[in-house]
Amino acid sequence: MRHYAVCLLCASVSLLPLPSLARPAPATPTPAAAPAPTLPPLTESDSTFAENVSALNTFEINISTLAAEQAKRRKVQEFARSSARMHTTNQKTLTTMALKHGLALHQEMSPDEEQIAGQLKTENGAKFDRDYLDLQAQAASDALAMFQNEAESASDPELKAYAAATADTLQANLKESLQLGASKPSR
């Protein structure tokens, strides 16, 4: 009987978990921070606007960064630095807005814009300054119409407010580029 009691004791002890060999109980999942609510997708028109603006910002940042270093006149360099900052801020704001709607924006220049930027890189002196300012005036003029239209017709209220505020900035940018000697943009 003593043998039976020892076997029973050993068997029962072997069923008990040893602290060093015991597996921890599975942790109960803690609720993770809820993801930010996603907004409905942008309309096709608003998405197209956001994509076009993203491409424009990328182009403007590239040529303005170049002009900040390569322009001959100090006033053109200052204007270029200001333009690069403005477009960088606009790009960050637009990207944040688009992501709320699940839209990831591309930030590449089109082949035409790459060619224009490449041509500008080969220039210097007064010709560089004039061509850069002409590009700025034309881009601001073209974008102004696009932003004014979006400010009136956007479906998303945040995008609408962004377009209205940026249209005012573009108007000031156009005026400044003309004051610095840009040719009047063609429509």
Rank of each mutant, 00 (worst) to 15 (best):
L66Q: 13
M109I: 11
A36D: 15
P111D: 04
A67Q: 03
A163K: 12
L18F: 15
S64L: 01
A11S: 12
K100V: 00
A161H: 14
S54C: 07
A80D: 03
A33I: 06
M97P: 02
L170H: 03
L16V: 15
C10F: 14
Q77S: 11
E60K: 00
V6E: 14
A36L: 10
T30A: 10
T166D: 02
L99E: 05
N173M: 04
K127L: 12
P185F: 07
S45A: 11
P24C: 06
A145P: 01
T169G: 13
S14W: 07
T30V: 05
S110Q: 02
G118T: 03
T88P: 05
H106G: 07
S141N: 08
S155N: 15
Q77D: 11
A55C: 04
N90Y: 03
Q91G: 11
L170V: 09
L94C: 09
R187V: 15
D131P: 01
P41A: 14
D134E: 10
A161V: 15
T166K: 03
A68Q: 05
E114G: 13
A151M: 03
I116Y: 03
A71E: 02
T89Q: 08
D142I: 09
S186Y: 14
L103S: 03
T43F: 01
D129V: 04
L174E: 00
P24F: 08
L18M: 15
A140F: 01
N62I: 13
E51C: 04
R85N: 08
M146G: 06
E78Q: 07
A126R: 06
Q171W: 06
A67E: 02
K92N: 10
S20P: 02
A167T: 15
L135D: 00
D131W: 03
A11C: 06
I63N: 00
A32D: 06
A140S: 09
Q148K: 09
G118A: 09
G125I: 06
S153Y: 08
L16S: 15
Q119H: 14
N149C: 11
R85L: 09
P157R: 00
S12G: 10
A163N: 12
A165V: 05
L94S: 05
A139H: 02
